[in-house]
Design a protein around this nucleic acid. Structure first.
Lengths: 127, 127
DNA sequence: TTTACATATTCCCATATAGGACTATAATGT
DNA sequence: ACATTATAGTCCTATATGGGAATATGTAAA
């Protein structure tokens, strides 16, 4: 059979955002609403060829959408596909929430003990 | 001289979770707390070699931690590094929230204005 | 020690990049 | 029609995989 090297970057959003430059593009699009390719080229300082190819990947995955405006292509984020990533990491949120909550509780307990022995007016832990 | 092929999977969390099987491992670890490699091998149905290698990537990136127990290695999630991904996608959340339609409309209006201007360099959005 | 078990690592290799340079396509202007 | 601009796509190539098999390392039991 064929050996698999790795999944295509165009296969899903996770692969698409694995590339720092592509994340950068998404950040710019999110910050400024929508941008033409030429603008992105200027902002990023990368060759047009590279920018277009990264946009191509993001487009194939569906995380950006294009709007033809004359000879320009204006890109904007199609948030629905980014939501895929969000929905995946979200459940893990409780893992560090738990951790932080435990640390906070511990700190507050210690603060209360110290308050009892030394400083009666302090009752709040570090936020 | 040096041509870059692609970023290493071990360079950051985004690359690490780009692989479906690695995401699957993280899901299992999150669901069941902590698991030995052998258990993961059984649950996943993949060769031990493959599982170990994927765990190696996740380990190097720091998204999992190991605990030696006898001749077993028990893996658990180190949530702090997953938070990196969460923190990155979170700002995009507003794009698919109830603001979605409004933002989209605004973006398209701005895009149309940009398309009318000749020089992409002079587009400095009001920050 | 020897044996058995649990994991990690090494070797080989087909393949998917990502970048640079160049080219093709499409829309607009003269 | 021809030139110009904006962007996409193609060709080439060094490199980083990821899988399978085999092997090494480490740990505990007989």
């Amino acid at each position: 059979m064929f050996r698999m090297a790795r999944a295509r970057t165009t296969s899903d959003v996770f692969n698409a955002i694995a590339e720092p430059r592509r994340r950068q593009i998404l950040e710019l699009l999110a910050a400024r609403g929508a941008l033409a390719v030429g603008t992105l080229v200027v902002l990023l300082g990368h060759p047009q060829s590279a920018v277009s190819k990264h946009l191509g990947v993001l487009r194939k995955v569906g995380v950006v959408a294009v709007l033809k405006q004359g000879k320009q292509r204006v890109y904007r984020i199609d948030a629905a596909h980014l939501k895929t990533v969000h929905d995946w990491v979200k459940p893990f949120e409780q893992l560090w929430d738990h951790h932080l909550a435990r640390i906070k509780a511990l700190a507050e307990r210690r603060a209360r003990q110290q308050a009892f022995s030394h400083n009666p007016q302090q009752q709040k832990g570090p936020s």
